[in-house]
Simulated assay, not measured.
Amino acid sequence: MNKTSSVRIDYFSDVLCIWAYVAQVRLDELRHAFHEQVVVHHRFIPLFGHTGHRIGTGWQDKGGFTGFARHIHKVCSQFPHVEVNEALWCEQPPCSSAPAHQFLKAVQLLERQGEVARECLPHCQDRTRFEETAWQVRLAFFRDNRRVDSRRELLAIAEECELPVAAIEALLDNGQAMAALMRDIERRDEYRIEGSPTYLLNEGRQKLYGNIGYRILEANVREVLERSDSQASWC
C-alpha cells in the first residue's frame, strides 16, 4: 500500500475570531505530532469585515459591543490557555479585520518569495515566521487590545517580529497583498466555507468547521495519511 506522504490543510480563519484564537493550540499540536507530514496553507476570510454591522447592528438586542465582549469573556473562561484583555471590544474596537488580513498576506507572499524564512521556529511552537506573525497579531488584539486595523500598529508588529517592513509596505501599496486576500475570499466561495475556523483536507473532500476538538483533527489527518493513493475513502 502506497501511503500519502503529507496532508495539505487549507485553514480558513479571521484574526478577530475567538474560535480561531482558541484553536491555535490545536494547529500547534498537529505540527508537533506530524511535523512535515502536515502542510498548513493559511487563508483569511472577512468574518469581521465590518464590525459595526456584524456586532454593532447584529448584537444590538444583546448589548452591542459590550454584550459581545461579555460573550467573548464567557467563551474564554472555558479555555485557560488563552488570554483576553478586559477592554476587548469595548474600548476602541477595530473597524475591520481586513487590514490585518492584508498585512498577513503580504508577509505570506514574502515567505513564498524567499524574503522571509520559511523554516519553523523551535522557540515558537514550531511555527514558521509567517505563522508566528499571525499569532502575534492575534495576541496583539485579544491579549493586548491593540488596534490591529491600523497600518501603523501592524507595521509596529512587523518590526517586533523582525520582518522587512519596507518590503511589506511595498506589497500593501502595489496591490499584491490585496489580490492574494481576494483570492482567499474566492476560495472561500469555491469551497462554500461557512465560517472561522474551517479546516479543508483531502482536496476539499473533508471539511471541519468550528470548535473542533484535537482528536477529530488528528483522526482526519491520519485517515488521509494512511489511505493508499488508489483506495476510495468510505468514512
Rank of each mutant, 00 (worst) to 15 (best):
I18H: 00
V75L: 13
G63R: 12
A87E: 09
F142D: 00
E218H: 15
Y214D: 05
S230H: 15
A87H: 13
P94I: 08
K62D: 11
A23V: 05
N211K: 08
L172N: 04
R152K: 12
H73A: 14
A98M: 11
L171Q: 08
S230E: 15
P164W: 01
F103C: 08
L171F: 08
E160R: 14
G58I: 04
R54S: 11
E36G: 03
A33E: 06
D144I: 10
H101L: 00
K74E: 12
E153W: 04
N220D: 09
V107K: 01
T51E: 06
Q102L: 12
F103N: 03
G67V: 02
S13D: 06
G56T: 05
Q231A: 14
R31N: 02
T66Y: 11
F103P: 02
Y214I: 08
I212P: 00
D28K: 09
R183S: 04
K207M: 11
P99V: 11
G195F: 07
K74I: 10
C235S: 14
A232T: 13
N202M: 02
F44S: 03
D126C: 07
A69I: 01
R143D: 05
L88G: 01
T51F: 07
V148N: 00
R188M: 14
A106L: 12
S230I: 15
V221D: 01
C90F: 02
K105D: 00
K207C: 11
R26V: 01
Y199N: 04
N211W: 09
G63T: 10
S77I: 02
V75K: 14
L109G: 02
I185T: 10
L154P: 02
F12S: 03
V22R: 03
L208K: 08
W234S: 12
I18R: 01
T4E: 12
M1P: 04
W59I: 04
E36M: 07
G64Y: 02
Y21K: 07
N85K: 15
E153N: 02
E160I: 08
Y11P: 03
